[in-house]
Design a protein around this nucleic acid. Structure first.
Lengths: 206, 206
DNA sequence: CTAGAATTTGAACGATGGTTCAAATTCTGA
DNA sequence: TCAGAATTTGAACCATCGTTCAAATTCTAG
């Protein structure tokens, strides 16, 4: 997890710390919404500031710049998804069921009404130096999912296939939902999550 | 198909026309490579010019600007994919086999060594006014694929499911391959195409 | 060969967007 | 209450990028 430094609060009072922390979180949420709405490249600092009801300059009091904001946004979502993947591993359910759970959580992390975020799909938007660690984390997640797929195949619960490629196909299908999903559409995000997971795992059941 | 106007050649000699046409095609190929390598937003006109071994200004002699270049790039790939989809419809093979053929062609259109292009995945990068027609064309393609999926279900060749959602899942999985595929990787683009198509259609076979 | 048209160049322009910063305002502890 | 620290503002700075254009060069018809 990217360490949250003390930027923007040299004050030590717990009261002030909490307020600073809250401001920072507010900014991140606002940024995540703009990133999701317009894409990272098209999201301007002025727009992020407006979304958070703040002046543009203040963003630089709480963060070093757009890159850092993006980094936190991506990190948060990836951590969330990693947690879901690790939770699934600890579960006694069958491999197909655990795989479905991970995929559902993945979709919800992106499309969820309140905290859905998609910035982590644009790791290349990070500058060199920040990118590597994020890619590593994303890869860790991918490996987690792939391990689940491979385990299912080994146990005979899933049909044999190229686990790496199938994993990428699954993740691609769910990631792409961020492009077409509309909150005001016919399907709720939970339904999308359920149907996608069912279809994708079905492609491997015997 | 977007009409190729006579921009950049008021000359009427067939000889000159052909040369102009060739220059234009060269520019489009160079642009497609840069778009694919860096993404549309990060691809600069100067970089496109350099990729084509030309000066930046000349691009504006052959095209009205970046938007038009992008438009042609997207249009070409979409037309290519549409042609493949329509060809599949005219084929006597089973629905699952036709679906696999379309998906394979789709992957090849993006990852093919020579002409693979991914700019059409970024329709939102087009300005209002150009975007609508491209979205319509993309949707036409999606409908074509969906029709195939629906037909297979109706005929009993494929398991019943939400055809629209499954189609999007399939297209997402193949589109995403543009993000992770590396020409110097373990798998050739044709192998990726084959395996993806197999897995995705398998998710619907009974 | 030569005049006029077509093509090409590259410097400069203007808009955009990330960022900085001096000054103003608000907050906190004593 | 008040001084000093923390926070906030918004105008200005600067780099980047799409684009323009006057001038230079190349091509072609007669």
């Amino acid at each position: 997890m990217v360490q949250i430094l003390n930027r923007g609060s040299t004050r030590t009072s717990p009261r002030a710390q909490r307020k600073t922390e809250a401001r920072r979180a507010e900014i991140l949420r606002a940024a995540a919404r703009v990133f999701r709405r317009k894409g990272v490249a098209a999201a301007g600092m002025r727009e992020i500031a407006e979304e958070a009801d703040l002046s543009p300059g203040i963003l630089y009091y709480y963060f070093s710049g757009k890159d850092e904001i993006l980094q936190y946004c991506q990190d948060r979502t990836l951590e969330h998804m990693l947690a879901a993947a690790e939770a699934a591993r600890a579960t006694p359910a069958s491999t197909p069921e655990r795989l479905r759970a991970v995929l559902r959580a993945h979709v919800q992390a992106m499309l969820g009404e309140l905290e859905g975020a998609t910035a982590h799909l644009e790791v290349e938007a990070l500058p060199e130096g920040m990118r590597e660690a994020m890619i590593a984390k994303r890869d860790r997640y991918e490996h987690e999912v792939r391990a689940l797929v491979a385990e299912g195949m080994k146990r005979g619960e899933l049909a044999k296939a190229d686990a790496a490629l199938v994993t990428r196909a699954m993740l691609g299908a769910v990631n792409w939902s961020a492009r077409w999903f509309r909150p005001d559409g016919k399907l709720r995000s939970a339904e999308v999550a359920q149907s996608l997971a069912d279809y994708l795992v079905r492609g491997l059941t015997k």
